[in-house]
């Protein structure tokens, strides 16, 4: 009888999952093979470190004779940028919106260096983002704490729970309710974006969180939001709040 009641209780639980309890949160790193983990852990093996090296060189280099390099204003990134990436997306005073780290890099480039913005997923943009991300490696992800971010955060949370595409899946159905199970042989992670930009073995390339989100949307046969869309930044913001306190791994490797 007790068993019967227990089964009834289980059946009555909504499949639309609750949030993952803090004690059960796990990085995507934990779901990887030992070989891939080793590739991430060892900077000499991690392909993303090539992008980091390029980003570091760019930090020092003036983009034109009339413009200062990043270091000209910000100085030594290992000091001035420590922990900064862990708090992105952040509120942007100029546009009055949430912007992610790559949008911040481009805003700085356009406003202070009078240079054209880097294209989405371009090598220099990913390089700078990876170099700045590295300055937060090992630090906790910081939850968005600016009250002006609240509306964007709410929209991000709603998007995470909105079914999309011909296959009609929401993020939460896989990443909250079914993490750890296998989709065509690959474990479904919990969607903690703690290591972006990442080197993804499937891409044989570096890529941003927006690229990864667009991949998932294509996977459920939805029309992906365009690069830079507010919706993608809102999702990034929600993911950041969901992973608050977890350790930044940038630049991570993923399968």
């Amino acid at each position: 009888m007790i068993r019967f009641i227990a089964i009834l209780l289980l059946l009555s639980l909504p499949a639309a999952a609750a949030d993952i309890p803090a004690s059960e949160r796990r990085s995507g790193y934990d779901f990887m093979s030992p070989a891939t983990q080793e590739m991430q852990r060892d900077d000499a093996l991690n392909p993303a470190m090539l992008w980091v090296a390029e980003g570091e060189a760019q930090w020092q280099e003036a983009p034109s004779s009339a413009a200062k390099p990043c270091a000209g204003c910000h100085g030594d990134a290992t000091a001035s940028m420590r922990g900064v990436a862990a708090g992105y997306p952040a509120f942007d005073e100029r546009t009055g919106k949430a912007i992610d780290l790559q949008q911040r890099i481009n805003a700085c480039r356009v406003t202070h260096q009078q240079q054209p913005a880097f294209a989405a997923e371009s090598r220099p943009l990913l390089g700078l983002a990876a170099y700045l991300g590295l300055q937060s490696r090992g630090l906790p992800v910081q939850a968005p704490d600016d009250p002006r971010l609240a509306p964007a955060l709410q929209r991000g949370e709603k998007l995470f729970h909105t079914a999309m595409g011909q296959l009609n899946f929401s993020c939460t159905q896989c990443h909250d309710a079914n993490w750890g199970k296998r989709l065509a042989g690959s474990p479904i992670p919990q969607a903690h974006a703690t290591g972006y930009p990442i080197y993804r073995l499937e891409w044989q390339d570096m890529g941003s969180l927006q690229r990864r989100l667009r991949n998932c949307m294509t996977g459920v046969r939805a029309e992906p939001f365009p690069y830079g869309a507010d919706e993608l930044v809102q999702l990034e913001l929600y993911l950041n709040s969901r992973s608050a306190g977890m350790t930044v791994e940038t630049p991570a490797v993923r399968p």
Partner: peptide, 8 residues
Amino acid sequence: LNRVGAAW
């Protein structure tokens, strides 16, 4: 359905 991709 919501935001179905163009091909679908």
